[in-house]
Simulated assay, not measured.
Amino acid sequence: MKHPALFKPVQLGQHTLRNRIVFPPLTRQRSAQPGDIATDLNARYYAQRASAGFMISEGTQIEPRGQGYAWTPGIYSDAQIDGWKKVTEAVHAQGGVIFAQLWHVGRVSHCALQPNGDAPVAPSAIQAVKVKAFIETGPGAGKLVDPSMPRELTVGEIKELVALYAQAARNALRAGFDGVEIHAANGYLVNQFISSHSNHRRDEYGGSLQNRLRFLREVIEAVVAVVGPERLGVRFTPLFSSTDQDRVYIGLVEGNPHETYIEAIRVLERAGAAYVSIAEADWDNAPELPEAFRRDVRKAFSGRVIYAGRYTAERAARLVEADLADLVAFGRPFIANPDLPERIANGWPLNELKAATLYGGDERGLTDYPTYSQAVSLVTDEVMS
């Protein structure tokens, strides 16, 4: 077996995972319309990849205002819950473990996606830059557009949002998910509260780092009260290099990212969360996270640590062997290779990703990637004919 470190079972909350290969949250924009509902096609897509040790759903918005891209699924209506049941039942039938990623984009949205055409909501009325929303109707339909100017949330509305996260967690359990992940990364709502760039509030939710972490703490506490700490994870995107300033679309670059995110991880530790997921920069030649940060993550957090980025099997195995990670997520490779763990274990070549079919559309580029055995059989049949 290749890379045996990736195939040692590991405990995550109540679950013994069969390997350390994670299928991470990946937006694919293929929910049924109207209603942003997961479908049989989505169920087939997830079931194909259920050999992952652990799976997290694509971001699923907790309320209508939480949407920043057309055709992404939600988890706030009965129809959406029923749609996700198809997914969880299909994954569990394959022996998989899957959490729901609870998502609110905050200011990274457009009036065309908001109820009644209202402005998006955010910690402060600061427009998002170097990031796009995707709209289906109105001027610019079918295109990426600049987000609209948001309006600042009142304290009362913030408390209501905390309650919406808790309700989304209840809905996730009703849908059959094994737990939930709070999306606190990529410049979306929770990340907007944490960042001094997007949070200019002068009340208890702004100013000092501890105040900016208040929304995260309250959301975690509310969700833990619903699902328990052993069924909770949180995702962050700490960016360190000055070159990351041009890549703000995956997060917000803090003046002291080390301090900011170690303190955020301590919030998870105090809550007893099952895991923290660190999404790294994933473009070509992106700088690696500082090893000092990785080591301080280990010191600050006693739960499981997941890293995601442009990892190869070799790099992932080294990280696990060095005890800097417990699990490693593979995004693009898992999209193109539904049998990715088997391919890694055997050193088999990987399918190429079809970039043009990543977002929106039908089964093409979603469920039509062959497994290695299917590809070999197809080649054999062609030779024999």
Rank of each mutant, 00 (worst) to 15 (best):
6 L>T: 03
7 F>V: 01
7 F>P: 05
8 K>V: 12
9 P>F: 12
10 V>Q: 10
10 V>M: 01
15 H>Q: 08
16 T>H: 09
17 L>E: 04
19 N>F: 04
22 V>F: 07
25 P>H: 02
25 P>G: 08
27 T>F: 06
35 G>E: 06
36 D>G: 03
45 Y>F: 15
48 Q>R: 07
51 S>G: 09
55 M>D: 10
59 G>W: 06
60 T>N: 09
63 E>H: 11
66 G>W: 05
69 Y>M: 13
69 Y>H: 12
76 Y>V: 14
79 A>P: 01
86 K>C: 02
87 V>K: 01
87 V>W: 03
89 E>M: 00
90 A>V: 01
97 V>E: 12
98 I>P: 02
99 F>D: 11
99 F>Q: 02
99 F>L: 07
100 A>M: 11
101 Q>G: 12
103 W>I: 01
107 R>G: 15
107 R>Q: 11
107 R>M: 06
110 H>C: 01
119 A>C: 06
122 A>D: 07
124 S>L: 14
124 S>Q: 12
125 A>K: 02
125 A>P: 11
127 Q>K: 15
135 I>Q: 02
136 E>R: 14
139 P>H: 09
140 G>D: 04
147 P>D: 00
148 S>F: 11
148 S>P: 10
150 P>A: 03
150 P>C: 03
151 R>H: 04
154 T>P: 07
157 E>L: 00
162 V>W: 02
164 L>W: 08
164 L>F: 14
166 A>T: 01
166 A>R: 01
167 Q>H: 08
170 R>G: 06
171 N>H: 04
175 A>H: 02
178 D>H: 13
181 E>V: 05
185 A>I: 10
188 Y>I: 09
191 N>M: 05
192 Q>W: 03
192 Q>P: 02
194 I>V: 14
199 N>W: 08
207 G>L: 13
214 R>D: 12
218 E>R: 00
222 A>P: 04
224 V>W: 06
226 V>T: 11
226 V>L: 09
230 E>W: 09
237 T>W: 05
245 Q>Y: 12
250 I>L: 13
251 G>P: 09
253 V>F: 06
257 P>I: 08
263 E>H: 14
264 A>P: 02
268 L>V: 01
272 G>P: 05
279 A>T: 15
285 N>T: 10
286 A>Q: 07
287 P>K: 05
289 L>E: 05
295 R>P: 09
296 D>K: 13
299 K>P: 08
301 F>P: 09
301 F>H: 05
301 F>A: 03
304 R>I: 08
309 G>H: 05
315 R>E: 13
316 A>W: 07
322 A>D: 14
326 D>F: 10
328 V>D: 13
331 G>N: 12
332 R>S: 12
332 R>D: 11
335 I>V: 15
336 A>T: 08
338 P>T: 00
339 D>H: 08
339 D>Y: 05
342 E>N: 10
345 A>C: 00
348 W>C: 07
349 P>I: 04
351 N>I: 04
363 E>R: 00
364 R>G: 12
370 P>G: 03
372 Y>N: 07
378 L>G: 13
380 T>A: 15
381 D>V: 00
382 E>F: 14
385 S>Y: 14
